[in-house]
Write a protein that binds this DNA or RNA. Structure first.
Lengths: 226, 226
DNA sequence: TTGGTTTGTAACATATTTGTAACAATTTTG
DNA sequence: CAAAATTGTTACAAATATGTTACAAACCAA
């Protein structure tokens, strides 16, 4: 997990379905890989995923058998959602015995898909309430997205908060503009690297006197601290 | 407007049983929801119920395990009655450790059922009159599902009540639209996240001058208080 | 059923945040 | 010490996010 995004592997023998899944879930902020068969999936490193979406009916190895292999041979507890047109009692029972966390009957609506995915992922990773404190009387509250200076919150927008939190939690470490761009903006978004400068100027202003805690090392980047 | 009816959630993998439960308890003046599996129940917002009726033997997640999740993961103290054909000493112990408030062995008579339910709800009611008070003269009465501002009740619908109660009981904590959706609507309901905005607008309006106690932090979500 | 209430959606109006470009100030380098 | 490169600052434009309204759909009690 490079950027905090949840990784999903979708396995289905229909190219169309894979495209729909990938397109929509990527849009929801997930990182989506796809496989056209169970065999292809088994050649991958499956331990890096947070969720599997498996078609039940495909090729020689069904979604059920793939799930079984994942659970038993690879000993993974990663949640699984089965995609299926079938809805008989028999199928459900087979699926649940294999530890299916949910079912999605085709055809499914995009909303239903993303709701189920969201629900499963949330359940498997409870929210964390971290409170980190750093020198210079700065406190970062990652739950409420607040940064305090001497006990008083600084009014920051989202990007501003993300940058300052990054700095404070890594005080002293120098971040190049590209580091900041990829960590705060993500890798898909393309903005001028001067945007970073402007955003930092805005943070400094909101920090008042303490604004000079954000330093610049010419030619390298920005960092926080003395 | 929220009515004062007690809400019961019945979970059993037999459709027939669910119908019997729903029909009879509704007739007794309760509001009854049903789920055909523990998985389905877990996708709901479970904090809004006053009693759970759980079948012990079902699917991959038994009633015992469901109760465990309710107690531990969701941190709810809502009373639980187990429905079971089994009656061994072993089962009883497991159930009571999980905080079972009663047992009902299948087949059970309707009279027995409603007597047990009434007894449990009466017993748990007094303690359920949780009254939490927060700054700004707001009081939440979780038993009657009422919220008072300066002693006077605000006329809220169910969703409105749930959101405002969530906010007041967690004053200062920021909730994203997704947080609110999954806590108030549950994970099985699929609605646009803008629905949250509209509902909050409605709450604010009903709160009158105090409406601005519900704040928004752009890009993050809503919270109550300063 | 019926009519009233609640809830969900879409469309539009505002407000806030973010991105860019231009230019000023500073630092680095030869 | 200049010239070049880098960084700081400002004002404005574009993109996002939120507030609000009206109406449709779902729900519920009689």
């Amino acid at each position: 997990m490079t950027n905090g995004k949840k990784r999903i592997l979708a396995v289905d023998d229909e190219e169309d379905i894979l495209e729909i899944l990938a397109f929509n879930l990527t849009g929801e902020g997930y990182e989506v890989d796809t496989c056209i068969s169970a065999e292809e999936a088994l050649r991958k490193n499956l331990s890096g995923y947070d969720l599997f979406l498996l078609d039940v009916m495909m090729g020689p190895i069904s979604g059920f058998r793939l799930a079984e292999k994942i659970r038993k041979e690879l000993a993974l507890t990663t949640p699984v959602i089965f995609l299926t047109a079938r809805d008989s009692e028999n199928d459900r029972i087979t699926g649940f015995n294999l530890g299916a966390d949910d079912y999605l009957a085709k055809p499914f609506s995009i909303r239903e898909l993303s709701a189920r995915v969201k629900a499963i992922l949330r359940r498997s990773s409870p929210e964390q309430v971290t409170i980190e404190t750093v020198a210079g009387d700065f406190t970062v509250d990652t739950a409420d997205k607040l940064i305090f200076s001497e006990g008083k919150p600084i009014e920051l927008t989202r990007k501003e908060y993300e940058i300052l939190a990054l700095f404070i939690c890594n005080a002293g470490k120098i971040f190049s503009r590209n580091d900041i761009l990829s960590k705060v903006w993500g890798d898909e978004v393309i903005v001028t690297d001067r945007t970073v400068d402007v955003t930092i100027a805005r943070i400094r202003k909101k920090m008042g006197e303490k604004g000079n805690m954000i330093k610049n090392k010419s030619g390298y980047g920005y960092y926080f601290g003395d």
